[in-house]
Design a binder for these strands. Structure first.
Ligand SMILES: [Zn+2]
Ligand SMILES: [Zn+2]
Ligand SMILES: [Zn+2]
Ligand SMILES: [Zn+2]
Lengths: 131, 131
DNA sequence: GCAATAATGTAATGTTATTACATCAATTGC
DNA sequence: GCAATTGATGTAATAACATTACATTATTGC
């Protein structure tokens, strides 16, 4: 998925997430952007849909929240399975990718002839500082 | 986590999930149990909390829904990491466990000194029939 | 310019989950 | 037995998350 030029709203949401310490809910993003003219949830959700599609943002299912992708690359190519550790103490989220897990999951789904479209891996717990 | 005797509400919710073809949202469960005296969401959520604690039920984060554990064992011992395939077509959910994935995730989190409390693995896609 | 497409604005509504407080039942200690 | 504690339940209100519907504006292709 090549990333096209972002629109005004997409840029505002992307910047909000990029400059955030951690993940933000859609409504938190909305509040942050009220000064920039945002008035309704849909403005956020529409921008997020596109940013998710472009791979610039990830959704954390277990938090109902969103986080900027931390990958250094330019997102010209789809990065594979994305996994996260999420600290319950400080809220820190760490994104990581592992080829071994990806291949193992691929083998397991292939065995049941399941066609994977999206894989969610989220590990809740406590980081080193918060242990 | 040894499973104590279930209370009346816990039994009703457990039965509803056990007899369901697939996962159900809390509000769907509520509707199913209105004839049995359920009136408010909290009655469902409280029962689900206990059933989750006992390992009899799993929460599907990407669906905001709940499903009865499909493991044959008696839940006397905690089964490790649970993963699911979820078909977008027919709604079929398949629970599986894999030692290799569990060990790999364990190694990865240990490397960042992260203390895991709960791991979510959910694979969305299409099953063989719905491909 | 004009049609087609994509993005935006706004309101209303739908869905999921929690807080607060009162009541009831079972268990424990004496 | 009985008070005290604990766990479970009932009910209402509210909070948090997400979508539908419809109107308007901006951009693109011709
Ligand atoms: Zn990423
Ligand atoms: Zn932490
Ligand atoms: Zn299970
Ligand atoms: Zn299917």
């Amino acid at each position: 998925m090549a990333t096209p030029q972002l629109t005004k709203n997409q840029t505002l949401v992307m910047d909000a997430l990029s400059h955030s310490e951690g993940p933000m809910s859609a409504y938190t993003i909305l509040d942050k952007l009220r000064d920039h003219g945002f008035r309704a949830p849909l403005q956020v959700y529409r921008a997020l849909d596109k940013l998710l599609e472009y791979g610039l943002v990830h959704r954390l299912e277990s938090l109902n929240a969103f986080v900027a992708c931390s990958c250094p690359h330019d997102h010209e190519h789809d990065h594979g399975v994305t996994a996260f550790t999420i600290c319950e103490g400080c809220g820190q989220v760490t994104e990581f990718h592992d080829e071994a897990i990806e291949q193992r999951l691929s083998a397991l789904t292939r065995a049941q002839s399941f066609k994977t479209e999206k894989t969610t891996i989220e590990i809740r717990g406590h980081c080193q500082s918060c242990a």
